[in-house]
């Protein structure tokens, strides 16, 4: 269980997180939605410890996060964040490059690449030679390669065609259900949300504005949530351009 309590984080004048409280149960698939710039990426980076909050805390099963936490997680970054100096297979099998699994690292990478719909020919390419959607999938492969307990996906289907998005949604669902991993996914893609989520949390104005199951989401009459999930400019959220 991951508990986030009263998280505050500002960048200068920009108060991004203004008291986020959130609990994520072991083995559940939580989808985080919210407008762009609302602090979704910042929230999961703070949960991971990549950003240090001004106030509040993150605990794992009741105790503060330790360095060992990183060895039990996988993270897909919004921009994939592949290492451009390494070929694809070394990105995917990065944790195995040194140590006992070194010999099988490449074969393992090829297997995981197949899970995200990429053929073995991609393994020896460099990230710069791939399209955005392919980079995203390599990032996804890197996140799941070591079979982590907790997975973070930042917009996994952005930049993918609908068919490939479906493949990725099924993969994320499978990782959460079959392997019993906890999955925390940020998405703007409502189809993806419906395919993946056990539970949904919406972030708005620096706080968790709404959270509940998919069934609860269907019947909720919260105007912010309605506007966000059905799209459109009418409603309480003022789009600013």
């Amino acid at each position: 269980m991951i508990s986030v309590t009263d998280l505050h984080l500002s960048f200068g004048q920009n108060a991004v997180l203004r008291g986020v409280d959130l609990e994520i149960a072991q083995g559940e698939s939580l989808v985080i939605i919210g407008g762009s710039g609302s602090g979704k990426s910042v929230l999961i980076k703070t949960i991971l410890g990549l950003l240090t909050p001004d106030e509040g805390q993150v605990t794992i099963n009741g105790t503060p996060r330790t360095a060992a936490f990183m060895s039990s997680i996988g993270m897909l970054f919004q921009g994939a964040a592949l290492f451009d100096s390494l070929p694809v297979w070394q990105n995917v099998a990065f944790r195995d490059l040194r140590g006992p699994k070194r010999q099988d690292a490449r074969a393992h990478a090829v297997k995981v690449l197949a899970e995200v719909g990429l053929g073995p020919d991609v393994a020896d390419k460099y990230p710069g030679e791939l399209s955005g959607g392919m980079q995203k999938r390599v990032g996804l492969a890197r996140a799941i390669a070591a079979d982590p307990d907790v997975l973070f996906f930042d917009e996994p289907t952005t930049g993918l065609d609908p068919m490939m998005a479906g493949v990725i949604n099924a993969l994320i669902r499978r990782v959460a259900t079959d392997r019993g991993a906890t999955a925390i996914t940020i998405t703007h893609d409502m189809a993806s949300m419906h395919a993946i989520a056990d539970r949904v949390a919406m972030i708005h104005e620096g706080r968790i504005h709404w959270q509940g199951t998919l069934a609860e989401l269907e019947t909720s009459d919260d105007p912010h949530l309605r506007q966000f999930t059905s799209g459109g400019a009418d409603g309480p959220i003022q789009p600013h351009w």
């Binding site: 990549l50 990183m70 993270m75 919004q78 592949l82 290492f83 451009d84 990065f94």
Partner: peptide, 16 residues
């Protein structure tokens, strides 16, 4: 460039 493209963050998440 690695910092800007979050590759440094990615290293942290890979226990490096």
């Amino acid at each position: 460039t690695m910092k800007v493209t979050e590759q440094i963050d990615a290293l942290h998440t890979l226990s490096t």
